[in-house]
Amino acid sequence: MKIEKIFASFNISAMGLSAQRKRMTAIAENIANVETTRTENGTPYKRKIVVMRASPEGSFQVALRNETIGLKITDEKHFSVGGIEFFEDEAPISGVRAEIVEDDSPERLVYNPEHPDADENGYVHMPNVNIIVEMVDMISATRAYEANVTAFNASKNIAKDALEI
């Protein structure tokens, strides 16, 4: 067994923590710019969202297949019988790739003829940020972050207990 495989769960939790941190950063930026009607390019602020994708494609299926084969080749006393190929040549687990993209939903129009950014009809083009949606997303990201911390701590305790054997 390669020593890197022992730390795979740490890497998975760390990638989840990083992705959720990026998500919380985007949400905080959205909340901070909920009233920003003019950015550097002269348009209203566009809501940022985080899109998460498996990286590379199919790595979860490869990992699941390897673990299933690993279970099939051990007997009741957990000794390796051997003779089964472990698909080492396939793509390694690299987890989740999180990227920040702009939301393409339409901007809100608010009637306020006294606003300096009002158009000729008196409407102000406001950002496409809904504070209620952002708060729900923040709670969801926080819970996911906490779940990854819990998984990381569980993996740490398992590794520590294994070293004490």
Rank of each mutant, 00 (worst) to 15 (best):
F7I: 02
A8M: 11
N11G: 14
S13V: 02
M15C: 04
G16K: 08
S18Q: 12
A19P: 03
A19V: 09
A19H: 03
Q20K: 09
K22Y: 01
M24L: 13
M24D: 11
M24T: 05
T25Y: 04
I27H: 03
A28S: 14
A28N: 06
E29M: 12
T36C: 01
T37A: 01
R38T: 10
T39W: 08
G42D: 08
T43N: 08
P44C: 03
P44A: 05
Y45L: 07
K46Q: 09
I49R: 06
V50Y: 09
V51F: 02
V51H: 04
M52R: 13
S55M: 13
S55L: 12
E57Q: 15
G58S: 05
G58F: 01
G58V: 11
G58E: 07
F60E: 10
A63S: 09
A63M: 12
A63W: 08
L64N: 06
L64S: 07
N66A: 14
N66W: 00
T68G: 13
I69E: 08
G70A: 06
K72G: 07
K72Q: 15
I73V: 15
I73W: 07
I73S: 08
E76Q: 09
E76W: 02
K77S: 10
K77Q: 14
K77I: 04
S80A: 14
S80V: 09
V81K: 13
V81M: 15
G83E: 02
I84Q: 15
I84A: 14
E85T: 03
E85V: 04
D89K: 11
E90C: 03
E90L: 08
A91R: 09
P92H: 06
R97P: 05
I100A: 11
I100N: 06
I100D: 05
V101F: 03
E102G: 02
D104P: 09
S105N: 05
P106M: 01
P106V: 02
P106S: 04
P106K: 12
E107W: 12
E107C: 05
R108S: 03
R108G: 00
P113H: 06
P113T: 15
P113E: 11
E114S: 14
H115L: 09
P116D: 13
D117P: 01
A118W: 00
N121W: 07
G122E: 02
Y123P: 00
Y123Q: 00
H125R: 07
H125M: 11
P127R: 01
N130M: 12
N130E: 11
V133L: 15
V133E: 10
D137M: 04
D137Y: 00
M138Q: 01
M138V: 00
I139F: 11
S140N: 09
A141H: 02
T142L: 05
R143Q: 11
A144K: 02
V149L: 15
T150C: 02
T150Y: 06
F152L: 13
F152W: 05
F152V: 09
F152E: 08
N153T: 13
S155C: 07
A159W: 08
A159E: 02
K160A: 15
A162N: 11
L163I: 07
E164H: 12
E164D: 14
I165G: 12
